Computed example of a mutant assay.
Amino acid sequence: MDNITALGGEVYEIDTRMAGYSGITAGYLILGDRPCLVETGTSTSAPIVRDALTSLGVGPADLATVVVTHIHLDHAGGVGDIARFYPEAEIVVHEKGARHLADPSRLMSSARMVWGDKLDTLFGELSPTESSRIRALGDTGTIDLGNGRTLSSHYSPGHAKHHVGLIDSGTGDLYVGDAAGVYLPQTGDLRPATPPPDFDLQTALGSIALFESLAPQRLLFSHYGPVGNVAETLERSAEELRVWVDLTRRAHSEGMDLDHAVAMVRERTRERYAALKDDDGTAEQFELLSGAPSNVAGILHWLNRVQP
């Protein structure tokens, strides 16, 4: 299948084809003794992910674990569907997200407020998962991949209060979710993801420092793909956060409303990203994943809390 890439170490990247786009959201299958899916993608992506798993030899009774870095719909919107397709799989999530997978009604209504009519085409509907199948993680936790190999979970809020990073003892791969930002392999661009309501600068920088301390061999971005240059990339993640926060803070101190703040930050950061100079849809992809309105709104929300 053309949406599967072997990454070595029995790890396979699956393009979940979010909203029909390629290269936007990745799920990862760790095959091994106890197959584990990291990130499900959206609900509308679930059949695509199932087909990919089938082609890799993982049948309905074979998947041992599904783990999500956090419960935003581009990462976990397919959990209910995937749980139904794979009735033996345990669903693993941070304890602050567990109840929303069991009862998604609040999560879906707040997502509908943000996305409106776009919700159905972009994400679809997160179906509930039986709470008996959900394992809620604390600040750390371990997922058994079989044969002594583990996936260790590390609480990494800042992007979202229910976010974890996951490190594979077999490969040294660190699944960063959105805590290190959004990476575009076509251009090498990296941009922060700072949506409301949970963004907090010190917490976000703390999560990046935690990732550095885990000394991973490789970063696996949910958006999008593997990056081998670990130290430089995490350093850049922190720098990007500071740039966006400094600019938004300036807009905030000048009393700008959201629209004017977004326009100013967009203008002042444009030169940082090759994607925005392309006219091949790459810029549209970037805006969908790490849109200036969402990023600036998240930073303003935080600023209003810490320096009203």
Results as ranks from 00 to 15, higher is better:
M1E: 10
N3G: 06
N3V: 00
A6F: 15
G9C: 06
D15E: 10
D15A: 11
R17M: 11
G20R: 07
I24S: 02
G27T: 05
L31Y: 08
R34S: 03
C36P: 02
E39L: 13
E39A: 11
T44N: 15
V49T: 06
R50V: 05
T54N: 13
A64W: 02
T69D: 08
H70D: 13
A76Y: 07
G78D: 09
R84H: 12
V93C: 09
E95F: 05
A102H: 01
P104Y: 12
P104C: 14
A111D: 07
M113P: 00
T121G: 11
S127P: 09
S132P: 01
S132N: 09
I134L: 05
R135E: 09
A136C: 10
D139R: 06
T140V: 02
T142H: 01
D144L: 09
G146Q: 02
R149W: 12
S152G: 13
P157K: 04
V164R: 10
L174R: 02
V176T: 14
A180K: 01
Y183R: 13
P192Y: 01
P195N: 14
D198T: 11
I208R: 05
A215G: 06
A215K: 09
P216I: 10
L220M: 09
Y224W: 13
A231V: 03
L234M: 07
V245A: 07
V265E: 00
L276I: 15
D280V: 14
A283R: 04
Q285L: 11
P293C: 12
I299P: 02
L303Y: 05
